[in-house]
């Protein structure tokens, strides 16, 4: 089974958020980057499939040079080789533009499966995988928790809302977007890192992929820090009053009731 895993490097979760001079993104100075969480699960699924059925896992990532570190980590965890779409200016592309680059980079790979995380921890659009499927003309399924090989394709477990699930069968090749949390991630090992050094990373530029950016249809104009900071609200009054106030908060602010 040949599996491509599209992964994204994102700012670490606890990165200090400051807005850059243009006001269109955060200041990346001092920000450390990491592998997007649901992509880590996608990679884990791919590696488990390979361990079970054999084959090859190819990681695919787009971004500037620093993305190389995340790619090497993925190789260290067990991926066989990588494709790095190298661009310093990915922000000029919208989700469709990025998906076009990724599609162009993998169209000759003849993969059986393309996996990616459900959504990124930074932009959170949650679309790249599904768009990629459409561009490549492949069937897809999203919010996937488990993948099993089946006759002529795969059988996947898909998460529905409110604790419901369903199985979906798809013919391969197919694109699946993976939900976080179902499998146990593996830690990077020294042996993995050493082996990763000798693995192939193919670097391509958008120009080489002949994917001239078409004008983005959606533009991120500016970013703002939300007014609300996380602070503790102490609800006072008698026990009954405090309880009523809490229920009010849980219903209308947290929307959990």
């Amino acid at each position: 089974m040949k599996i491509i895993v599209a992964i994204k490097q994102v700012p670490e979760r606890d990165a200090r958020i400051r807005i850059d001079a243009e006001g269109t993104w955060i200041d990346l100075q001092d920000v450390e980057f990491t592998l997007n969480e649901s992509d880590a699960y996608a990679l884990e699924e791919a590696l488990q499939l390979k361990e079970e059925h054999g084959g090859e896992v190819v990681v695919l990532s787009a971004g500037p040079e620093r993305v190389g570190k995340t790619i090497r980590e993925a190789l260290a965890k067990g991926a066989d080789r990588a494709i790095h779409v190298e661009s310093d200016d990915l922000a000029a592309y919208d989700a469709l533009g990025v998906a076009r680059l990724l599609a162009a980079a993998v169209k000759d790979e003849q993969a059986d499966l393309i996996l990616t995380g459900l959504q990124s921890d930074d932009l959170g659009l949650g679309q790249t995988g599904v768009i990629l499927a459409e561009l490549l003309g492949l069937p897809h399924a999203s919010l996937i928790l488990k993948i099993e090989a089946a006759e002529g394709g795969v059988k996947v477990l898909r998460e529905l809302e409110d604790g419901w699930f369903q199985h979906v069968e798809l013919p391969t090749p197919a694109v699946l977007t993976i939900q976080s949390g179902n499998s146990k991630l593996r830690y990077a090992t020294l042996m993995g890192i050493k082996k990763a050094k000798t693995k192939e990373v193919r670097r391509v530029t958008p120009l080489e992929l002949a994917a001239e950016p078409e004008a983005s249809v959606v533009v991120l104009e500016r970013v703002l820090l939300p007014n609300k900071q996380r602070t503790t609200q102490i609800l006072g009054g008698s026990p009954a009053e405090a309880a009523a106030a809490l229920v009010e908060k849980l219903r209308f602010e947290v929307r959990a009731l």
Binding site: K184, L185, R186, Y187, T189, L190, M191, G192
Partner: peptide, 13 residues
Amino acid sequence: AVNTGAWEDSHGT
């Protein structure tokens, strides 16, 4: 065990 990934422990991971 750890440098080769042979130790699998959910808390350790």
